[in-house]
Computed example of a mutant assay.
Amino acid sequence: MLKLMRSPLKYVQGQGALLHVYEETKNLGKSFLFICSNSGFKSCHEKIEKSFEGTDATIHFEIFGGISSIGEVERMRAIVKEKNIECVAAIGGGSAIDTAKATAHYENLPVLVIPTVVATDAPCTGLSVIYHNDGSFSNYIFYPKNPDAVIVDSDIIANAPAKFLVAGMGDALGTYFEARACEKAKAPSLENGGITKSAMALCKLCYDTLLEDGYKALKACENKVVTPALEAIIEANTYLSGVGADNGGLAVSHSVYNGFTALKECESTMHGSVVAFGTLAQLVIEDAPEEEFYEVMEFCTSVGLPVTLEELGVTDKDRVRIAAENACAEGESIHNMIGDVTPEQLYNALIVADALGREFLNQ
């Protein structure tokens, strides 16, 4: 298996970054379609319009329907054709980003990503999650390239609810441990290639940054100010986690998330929260050193990530069995583990992780 490495062509981050959108993306085209969430449009459009003042480029903002559905992608493709768009851009969270990526892919255009929250590592990855028009899951789209540009304005992130930053740290927490498991098993990355030393270095840096700056960044975000720690966590949640996962691979943590989505009581639980707890379960399966396990658990509790099933909204052990069965379905990334993992083994690990978490909280 050949080793490979992919990433966005350009990553820009900092305070006031939106005032430089035109300057950083003028090579991508002369007409831009910005696919926006409602909140994304409100918080970003004035700065973006200012960045395009005095240029010969045209911009069009379109509020999307809230879900990266087949119908929304088709609607945006029609606008691209009608407006003679040369670059598709996203402003918002994961769904807006996935809609823009798919639209750009099908229209063979460059894509610009402007996240307004850092709750997942979607901005830098080369894939989308697509849903049917009724909101049910349809398919993943794996793209031949990552986004052409990702621009993150730290002021926008600092003013978003802190729960999104925490969720992003939960998603980022799995990056190193899942990649490490894939490397040991010689399993392919999300890009279906071998894992490079560069990818592993990014994944480890992601974890180290969470430990060093996570709590301090949370305090900054809660107070809506930008500090070096917040800048570091924005980069960890967005770039290090996104490029790390793309090139490092997934294992137990993300399969646990997929499994728990089958439970109605977890419908409102954030992606990163479940991934964080899935990381604890993976460490139990690996029989990781006690010091490492409790280092991860202490980090989780310091920033408000769950360490018990009850914190995920699950109180019935029979429901945990259902989640474990779904997490071990054919094609799930949990099968990247050395020796594989059965539903029973995963159930056992989830129960033990929960018991250790309850004990830790009661100390």
Rank of each mutant, 00 (worst) to 15 (best):
Tyr143Trp: 10
Pro144Ile: 04
Pro144Val: 09
Pro144Gln: 13
Lys145Val: 13
Lys145Met: 12
Lys145Thr: 14
Asn146Ala: 11
Pro147Thr: 11
Asp148Leu: 03
Asp148Asn: 15
Asp148Thr: 10
Ala149Leu: 12
Ala149Asp: 08
Ala149Gln: 04
Val150Tyr: 07
Val150Ala: 10
Val150Phe: 10
Ile151Gly: 05
Asp153Tyr: 10
Asp153Glu: 13
Asp153Ser: 12
Ser154Leu: 12
Asp155Met: 13
Asp155Ala: 13
Asp155Trp: 13
Ile156Val: 15
Ile156Met: 09
Ile157His: 04
Ile157Ser: 09
Asn159Lys: 15
Ala160Pro: 11
Ala160Gln: 08
Lys163Trp: 09
Leu165Trp: 05
Val166Thr: 14
Ala167Gly: 11
Gly168Lys: 08
Gly168Ser: 12
Met169Asn: 07
Met169Phe: 01
Met169Cys: 06
Met169Val: 11
Gly170Val: 09
Gly170Arg: 06
Gly170His: 05
Asp171Asn: 08
Asp171Gly: 06
Asp171Glu: 07
Asp171Arg: 03
Ala172Leu: 07
Ala172Gln: 06
Ala172Val: 04
Ala172His: 05
Leu173Glu: 00
Thr175Tyr: 00
Tyr176Ile: 01
Tyr176Pro: 01
Tyr176Leu: 03
Phe177Asn: 00
Glu178Trp: 03
Ala179Phe: 01
Ala179Leu: 03
Ala179Met: 02
Arg180Thr: 10
Arg180Lys: 15
Ala181Val: 00
Ala181Met: 10
Ala181Trp: 00
Ala181Asp: 00
Cys182Thr: 04
Cys182His: 02
Cys182Lys: 02
Cys182Val: 05
Glu183Ser: 11
Glu183Leu: 15
Lys184Ile: 13
Lys184Cys: 09
Ala185Ile: 01
Lys186Gly: 11
Lys186Ser: 14
Ala187Gly: 03
Ala187Tyr: 00
Pro188Gln: 09
Pro188Trp: 01
Pro188Asn: 11
Ser189Met: 10
Ser189Thr: 13
Leu190Gln: 12
Glu191Thr: 14
Glu191Val: 15
Glu191Trp: 15
Glu191Pro: 02
